[in-house]
Amino acid sequence: MILEVSNLSITLDGITIIEPCSFSVSENDFIGIIGPNGGGKSTLIKAFLGLIPYSGSVNFSIPLSHIGYLPQFNHSIDKRFPITVEEIILSGIEGITPKLTKNEKKNKLTHVLSTFNLTRLKNNSIGTLSGGEIQKTLLARSIISNPKLLILDEPTNFIDHTSEQELYTILKNLNQTMAIMMISHDLAIIPTYIKSILCVNKSVHFHAGNAITPEVLSTYHCPVELIAHGSFPHRVVESHKKES
């Protein structure tokens, strides 16, 4: 067991964002976290990571530094900050003990740079990158430490279709050595990559296995609707209905 959550609930400014829930994450899990906009997915993982106060208990069997994290949007990143791709990625191994040697750092860096096709950009400053390139840099930052648990908040934001397929393949390989929790709005990936599902819409429901029907999702308060995505019809979680 890597993570054990029991009776976790989150209230911000007097509003309940997440109702009490319990679930656990083991080695080699690949959990897809789905739910409508505003359902509380990002808030839930921020709570695990200690960024948001919560009540209940969250127990990790690993130190915080063995968790890799990709935040949701990279808009909040200051594009005028004087920092290079290489420096950003290296910030992902801060906090690791025992400290890595210079050579180990260099090898890890070279490896993740090539994983995300960033090698030619490594000395570029953040201000010269595109949205997708920044996203890849942050993905590289999240995995450089070889985490035991990788938490990704909508990793395919800003990412083009080819890179998206590449990313899923990379994640599938990484999953052999680490547990992954991934927030996504793309239900099409569930049968191929996801092993179990967490539906988050104020209430949290854990569904073991990846065989799931729209009917079941609906009972989890994550109703599904069909939308046109490019030329393909596409299943997504229905957007949040205002409660009257």
């Binding site: 990571l49 200690g50 960024l51 915080l64 530094s65 968790i67 994290y69 935040p71 990143i77 200051d78 900050f81 920092i83 950003i88 910030s91 992902g92 801060e94 906090g95 930052r141």
Partner: peptide
């Protein structure tokens, strides 16, 4: 650059 991220480390 990113204090929230550093907290998660």
């Amino acid at each position: 650059f990113d204090s929230e991220y550093m907290k998660t480390r």
